[in-house]
Write a protein that binds this DNA or RNA. Structure first.
Length: 555
RNA sequence: GCGCCUGUAGCUCAGUUGGAUAGAGCAACGGACUUCUAAUCCGUAGGCCGCAGGUUCGAAUCCUGCCAGGCGUACCA
């Protein structure tokens, strides 16, 4: 807010300088206001003079001097301006001028940081979409945290967001699942079955076999293998999906829609899609298979959509699925995938483009792997061997808040070491408590305070005016950054920016807490500081909510 | 071989999309609880931003080439 005012003031200064013939060109670039890292460089700065040097054909410092003359009396809250370095203009803001930041926070309350950036554009975020062949593991948890938080941040930033889970309930893996259950089922009746290692090994398979026995008795033994596999597959997939849904609910993640791959076949959508590809001559036959010409759209080789045995590939239904998504009117479709699927991106982009959609409307967030550790030692994980720590296990052991927060303490591009022992610790090593502690501490102050300022419609100007110490100003400046952080986080689809911001804000608060007393004998000063710390509390609560993490009143 | 991601303090990672003297946490060392919660704070120390070129007023950031690690490279999903 202060930044946008400054932006306007600088632009106005440039305009005046041009009008008075001091600047030859009126081709002004967008004014950028940034915050210098070094305090000696003021509260804000602009590099406009440097950027304009080429167009104006003048040295940057000279331009800065011209601009500075027009900035002299632009606003009474600008204490002074400096020209420094190669041509930065630095602004020093009056310590008493930061009150509007707190007013904005209290007025907006849980909407502080929200924006209309998305202008109501329809965005779909599809995430997790784990195959219903087994429970979710830690890697899925990270995808869930990233996808869910991204969706929350986009919605907060004015996008019309829909969250979707794609269920791969068709194809060979599901057959394998059914077979796995059937074989265990037969074993329950004393059959000496040979259990291939291509089948799913986990105990949950045997559990489901027992359930089949309870439900059908020995009825499946009489069926053809094909029918029995189908029965088992349907039952198992349904049960697993239900488990996944419950795990995600326990993790604080919900979806607007669960989309079945099988439904694309049942409705004839996949066949229609392939027919359309033929129509547009985007496919050709070779070696008995049908190939999609993805190389026409930048992929490195063409891809099979119908195998020579007549069965469609996963890619075929995925083309149909993404066409269907865009037909639903989404301006942007975001898929959150595990990094091991990155080779799939070019062909999917190609398919989207071939369907006549601008490929930029299709975006993939590739989430890197999670290395699960316990006290620094890797925990063995192999889905096929059935040895893995499930997301449910992790949430049970370390808690939902810690798990979600830690999944978002890295850029999704970086692999993440997730140490169960560290995640459990209620100490310095665990940033989630560091942030939550701020919320609890402030709640405690409020309980102790004689007055309640949280319902104040308008803030007492006299109380605000007491907030002039360097510690006060520093903390307010930190709060002032929040909307920009959210905007960047939404623009780049990077939830970790919020996480890092919260850790920084928490640090600033703890530091403040140790230097300044909130509740004192001075009623005005106390009131002012209550305005300040409750604003911090609101921003912490607000940011944690975007991460799907709770803000406790006591710890 | 080719493609994608990563390489920043002893360790784990940020770095406002090209800005000023590269930051934080942990670990190490030294301090602060008769105080609104010590799950906290203050201080010290720690750097060839993988290497080498290039682009410009200016590069951890952009381009090229190497080196190292991870992942991928199906008529699997």
């Amino acid at each position: 807010m202060i930044k946008s005012k400054l932006k306007h003031i600088v632009r106005e200064a440039a305009r005046q300088a041009h009008a008075q013939g001091q600047l030859p060109s009126d081709a002004f670039p967008e004014v950028e206001i940034e915050e210098p890292k070094n305090e000696a460089h003021g509260d804000f700065s602009t590099n406009l003079a440097m950027i304009m040097a080429k167009v104006q054909k003048m040295p940057p410092r000279k331009i800065a001097e011209i601009l500075q003359a027009h900035l002299q009396d632009a606003a009474d809250w600008i204490l002074k301006t400096d020209i420094a370095g190669p041509g930065f203009i630095n602004f020093f803001i009056a310590p008493g001028a930061w009150g509007p930041v707190l007013e904005a926070i209290h007025a907006a309350n849980d909407q502080y940081g929200a924006s209309t950036m998305g202008q109501g554009h329809k965005v779909q975020v599809e995430f997790v979409s784990s195959n219903p062949t087994g429970p979710l593991h830690v890697g899925h948890g990270r995808g869930a945290a990233v996808g869910d938080s991204t969706a929350r941040i986009l919605a907060f930033s004015g996008y019309d967001v829909q969250r979707e889970y794609y269920i791969n309930d068709s194809g060979r893996q599901i057959r394998t699942l059914g077979l796995s259950v059937l074989l265990r089922y037969r074993a329950l009746f004393g059959e000496n079955v040979d259990f291939p290692d291509t089948c799913y090994q986990g105990d949950y398979i045997t559990d489901m076999a027992r359930a089949m026995k309870d439900k059908h008795g020995d009825g499946l033994l009489a069926q053809t293998e094909d029918d029995a596999v189908t029965t088992c597959a349907r039952y198992a997939a349904g049960l697993i999906i239900e488990g996944i849904r419950q795990d995600l609910v326990d993790f604080g993640v919900s979806f607007d829609q669960w989309f079945s791959e099988q439904s694309l076949y049942d409705s004839g959508r996949v066949d229609a899609c392939i027919a359309a590809l033929r129509e547009k001559q985007q496919v050709y036959e070779k070696d008995g298979a049908l190939w999609f010409k993805s190389t026409d759209f930048g992929d490195e080789k063409d891809r099979v959509v119908v195998r020579n045995n007549g069965i469609t590939t996963y890619f075929a239904s995925d083309i149909a699925y993404h066409q269907e998504k865009f037909e639903r009117g989404f301006d942007t479709v975001i898929d959150v995938w595990g990094a091991d699927h990155h080779g799939y991106i070019p062909r999917m982009k190609a398919a989207v483009e071939a369907s006549g959609t601008n490929p930029e409307q299709f975006q993939v967030i590739l989430v890197q792997l999670v290395n699960l550790l316990r006290s620094g030692e890797p925990v063995a994980m192999s889905t096929r061997a059935g040895e893995f720590v499930t997301l449910q296990d992790v949430v049970k052991e370390v808690g939902r808040d810690a798990a979600r927060f830690l999944f978002l303490t890295r850029h999704y591009d970086s692999t993440l070491d997730f140490d169960l022992e560290v995640a459990k610790q209620k100490s310095n090593d665990n940033p989630v408590y560091y942030v939550q502690y701020v919320h609890a501490r402030i709640a405690s102050i409020c309980r102790k305070a004689a007055i309640d300022v949280t319902d104040d419609e308008t803030l007492d100007a006299k109380a605000l005016a007491t907030l002039t110490t360097p510690e006060d100003v520093q903390l307010i400046k930190q709060l002032n950054r929040y909307p920009d952080i959210i905007a960047a986080s939404a623009r780049f689809r990077e939830p970790h920016r919020v996480t890092f911001y919260l850790m920084t804000l928490a640090g600033a608060f703890h530091s403040y807490y140790n230097r300044q007393r909130v509740l004192t004998d001075d009623p005005m000063a106390t009131k002012g500081r209550l305005y300040l710390v409750t604003a911090v509390q609101k921003v912490i609560r607000n940011g944690l909510a975007l991460l799907g993490v709770s803000a406790p009143e006591r710890m």
